[in-house]
Design a protein around this nucleic acid. Structure first.
Lengths: 154, 154
DNA sequence: CCAGTAAGTCTGAAAAAGGAACTGATATCA
DNA sequence: TGATATCAGTTCCTTTTTCAGACTTACTGG
């Protein structure tokens, strides 16, 4: 399996991993969801090297997750905002935050609390079945090959 | 931000990223959820170098996500099974698979379909609010500092 | 003119990943 | 008995990525 063709693998997880499956990209996305938009903003809050930040932002733009929007004409300055496709990454980020809250916490408690503005309460994200609405557990799910699965693979 | 102390950052996402935030680890976990348990199984289906596989499995065991269980006494052989903590990663993996299905698909359709055994239907995973049960969207969530957040950070 | 800010680029050293052969304990075949 | 195979790793060397920090370009404000 080679990284440069990972986004063409017949596996949706591989394809997602090809786009956001590295540490800096995930942390950059966290900042995006916390409303950070500018190069210096990402750089100072993450302490990422400018070189890598530049590369990762380009990649996220290339995959349509961020849009590079000018906010100043002279000098030319751009900021990076989440596209619809980028906003759809929210469940991934929230699932990771939730796992961290549940399994990597310390005695001080959670670093952040999340309020659902629709209902006004502090909440946890829960993953449910789109059909019956029940909470999902790994052992209740059965996997079938789909139409995009090459026959050669079991 | 240094990688070796990322799991102590006052941010649940960083802590999760410290454990599973690299490409191979995510792919290894996919195989775990597809019931792969043995070294040769991971190696042959992922084409990961044995060196890296060995390192990643050790790390997953160290963080309590996999358990190393003997399945043969002579010769000594071990397999790797998900712990409860590892099973709890399922929503992360499913969220990634779902994003890949939705945004990285091709004309052939989905590589895998998921059946919820509880209700018997093919489903998509949906992330909802634990309090009101509504589907979550990034723009409806407001973030508050929690007790584990150092005051120095906004 | 000088300092400061923002968004990058460039460079050399350090760390991580890749590739492939090797090890050790046992089973299987001829 | 010796030759081959299996499984779970380890070792060694090369290539690729990442890191740390200086440098660049285009302005603004005093």
């Amino acid at each position: 399996m080679k990284w440069d063709t990972l986004d063409e693998e017949p596996c949706s997880l591989s394809r997602t991993v090809a786009v956001i499956g590295d540490r800096w990209t995930l942390l950059i996305l966290r900042e995006c969801f916390l409303r950070v938009r500018r190069f210096e903003g990402f750089q100072s809050s993450l302490q990422i090297t400018r070189h890598l930040l530049s590369e990762r932002l380009k990649k996220l733009v290339r995959f349509g997750i961020l849009r590079r929007v000018p906010y100043s004409e002279a000098p030319k300055r751009y900021e990076y905002v989440l596209t619809e496709r980028g906003l759809d990454l929210y469940p991934i980020i929230m699932a990771m935050v939730h796992w961290g809250d549940a399994h990597m916490g310390d005695e001080r408690g959670r670093p952040l609390l999340h309020e659902h503005r629709t209902c006004g309460k502090l909440f946890d994200p829960v993953m449910v079945c789109s059909e019956c609405g029940e909470a999902l557990h790994a052992r209740q799910v059965h996997v079938h090959p789909g139409p995009g699965r090459p026959k050669a693979i079991a």
